[in-house]
Simulated assay, not measured.
Amino acid sequence: MKMKKLTLSLCCLTLAACNSMPTSGPSQSRVMDLQNQNTENLPTVEVVEVEDNVATALFNQQQAQSFSHFANANSYNGAVNVGDTLDVMIWEAAPAVLFGGVLNQSGTGGAQLTSLPEQMVSESGKITIPFLGAISVRGKTPEQIQKDIVRRLSPMANQPQAMVRLVKNNSANVTVLRQGNSIRMPLTAHGERVLDAVAAVGGATENTYDISVQLTRGSEVKTISLEKLASNPTENIKLRSGDVISLLNNPLSFTALGAVGSNREVRFSAKGLTLAEAIGRMGGLIDTRSDPRGVFVFRYLPFEKLNAQDKATWQGRGYGVGMDVPTVYRINLLEPKSLFWLQRFPIQNKDIVYVSNAPLAEFQKFLRIIFSITSPVTSTANSINNLSD
């Protein structure tokens, strides 16, 4: 009788401890309940069910980072602007009237090549030419300036010729930034491209696996991997004046947690990673433990990247510029279409990919605890009964 009471007491204690059994993380239902919690200690969390529209929207957002999506802009054609330095040479055929050398017996000079001092285009867009005064050169190519000078000198000089050369291009350049080395690269009529800027700064000195190239044009900023830029000609677009190219060395990683083959931090290249590839790299789901309905991606979304409607919603919850919105994406792998969604869902730096335990796995864990405790008790009771006999 006493042994029965002891056994019953142990079972009761075990049942009481059921709720405190160690697990690898919250269950699928507990994660889904995050969106319904309104406590002061926990932030409001957006739980998004991944389906066709969500996967397509996230995929399109990533594709929008392509440099080829920049609006077509007129490339630099060699036109002169304020601040540029020009070299002007004028030649007059014999008998030279305006630019001749020593006068001959007829009172005219021989043929002469006259090189004027280098001049910087003034704020008003002009340079000064002898006998012509200030002439406007802003917005004109060197060839157009040459023709303009010859046309205006023709009534005064004998068969004048002019040569105009752009010595220093100060008005049309791009800025190239790299850790330890930054330059201003002047543009030419050749039409420099993004890879020309990367080469001009010395290329990537670190592992190209981690290098991203960021192009800032006006108010638009797009970032792609150096690997993608080098392998896809459509990304190597022509530069325009004022562009800023930055070479970023940012090792990317996500963290794998829960019922997966390996709980660890996983690095990936700047080229990017899909959720399908991420699951493969973390060893897949554990068949005996994982809940295929509970595959989650935990992510902070910058407030600035939300659409207007979502911004208004989160502003009402106290969020604003400079803050990050906690978001959870959930994928149900029991849905056959989810295998397509996995291939379009992009992983971002510092994401947490979590797979919850199946309810049955928790129950089996409970049974193992029960039997590990009661088995020795049962054995002891049998031994006592045998002695009493």
Rank of each mutant, 00 (worst) to 15 (best):
T255E: 13
I224R: 07
S231D: 15
R217K: 12
S241P: 11
R217I: 06
N232F: 15
V194E: 00
V198G: 11
S231A: 14
G261Y: 00
R267H: 09
A256V: 11
I245R: 06
L285C: 07
S241G: 12
G202V: 13
D196H: 07
N236F: 10
L229S: 04
T288A: 15
S269G: 12
A270F: 04
A200T: 00
T274D: 05
V213E: 09
A230E: 13
A204N: 03
S290N: 06
T274G: 04
S269P: 07
S290E: 08
N263Y: 00
R240G: 11
D210P: 08
V244A: 10
Y209I: 02
L252A: 09
K222W: 01
D243F: 02
V213T: 10
Q214A: 12
E277N: 13
S241T: 07
D243Q: 04
T274P: 07
N250Q: 08
G261L: 00
G280M: 04
A200E: 06
V221F: 06
R264D: 13
M282F: 03
L247R: 04
S246R: 09
S219V: 14
A259T: 01
N207K: 13
D196R: 08
G284Y: 06
A259F: 05
N232R: 15
I286K: 13
A197W: 00
D243C: 05
V201A: 00
I224W: 02
R240S: 14
D210F: 08
T223V: 10
E206S: 15
Q214R: 11
E220V: 13
G202K: 08
S225V: 03
A230P: 02
T274C: 05
R289I: 12
I211K: 01
A197E: 01
G218H: 02
A197I: 00
R264Y: 04
K238S: 11
S253L: 04
G272Y: 10
S269Y: 03
S253M: 02
T208G: 03
D196Y: 06
S241C: 11
S231R: 14
N250A: 04
E220K: 15
G202I: 10
F268L: 06
R267A: 15
N263A: 06
A204G: 06
L257F: 04
T255V: 15
D287C: 07
L195H: 10
N232K: 14
S246K: 05
G203C: 06
R289H: 14
G242Q: 08
E277T: 09
G284K: 10
G258L: 01
G202Y: 07
L226W: 05
